[in-house]
Computed example of a mutant assay.
Amino acid sequence: MTEDHRRVQDFFTARAADWDSRFPDDGPAFAAAVGSLALGPGDVVLDAGCGTGRALPALRAAVGPGGTVVGMDLTAAMLESAVRAGRDRSGTLLLADAARLPLRTESLDAVFAAGLISHLSRPGPDLSEWARVVRTGGQLALFHPIGRAALAARHGRRLTDDDLRAEHNLRPLLARSGWRLDAYTDEDDRFLALAVRTS
């Protein structure tokens, strides 16, 4: 395990028990973001960095009982919180690294990732790994329940041009990693980048 992985695990382990209570009003934002994906009955979707599983019920509703929902996270304590919240009933929980997914090539219809991209130690290779497991024409949603400026303000930082999630940085990064950015929204109450897996 790398030092970056340990840092991420330490950060989220310390916050797992009260994560949902810190952000109690995010549910509708997660549901709306999932709704922006063109998921259908029977689809197979991964929630990468699922945390406490807040997107899992909406993902289950989108793919129906015949679909497959996998929630993956690097931090066991976050997955334990997902189980306590009953969200394991909406999907299979998997303790794994987003950079090395234990999934077959082109086995998914979509990847949903909430708040994860800023925690990736190697964004380009990691996005390429997600592209590997998604079929051509499949989708990627990079989501956060608040926009870049609001998030920076929350953490007492200035928004800078080198922010990975800025459209001028994200679009070429995705293109180099097997994705085409199709829609980009960065508002105070939502960040959402939708991309399609290219051939």
Rank of each mutant, 00 (worst) to 15 (best):
R135S: 10
M1H: 12
G64N: 07
S90P: 00
A193I: 00
A29G: 07
L159C: 09
T160C: 12
V69D: 00
D126Y: 11
D20F: 05
F143R: 03
R104L: 11
D126C: 13
S36K: 11
P172E: 04
S199N: 15
L170N: 00
M78R: 04
R54I: 13
A98G: 10
A33F: 08
R190K: 12
R158V: 09
A16Q: 05
S36I: 06
D20C: 03
A114F: 04
A99W: 00
A61L: 10
S107N: 05
T75K: 06
R54T: 13
P28V: 10
T68C: 10
L170Y: 00
T198E: 15
R60T: 04
D162V: 15
L93N: 05
T198Y: 14
R154S: 07
F191K: 12
G67H: 07
T105E: 12
D126V: 14
L94H: 03
V70D: 01
L142H: 00
F143Y: 11
G91L: 02
R87K: 04
D188F: 06
L39K: 14
R15E: 08
E80W: 07
G124F: 10
A131D: 10
A33W: 08
M72K: 01
R60C: 02
S107M: 04
P57A: 11
A175S: 13
R60A: 12
R148N: 13
I117E: 12
D188N: 11
W130S: 08
V69Y: 01
L170S: 00
E167L: 06
G66T: 14
A110Y: 01
R15Q: 09
L181H: 11
D109M: 03
D47K: 02
A183W: 09
P145W: 13
G115H: 08
G51D: 04
I146F: 11
A175N: 10
D26T: 00
R54Q: 12
T13A: 14
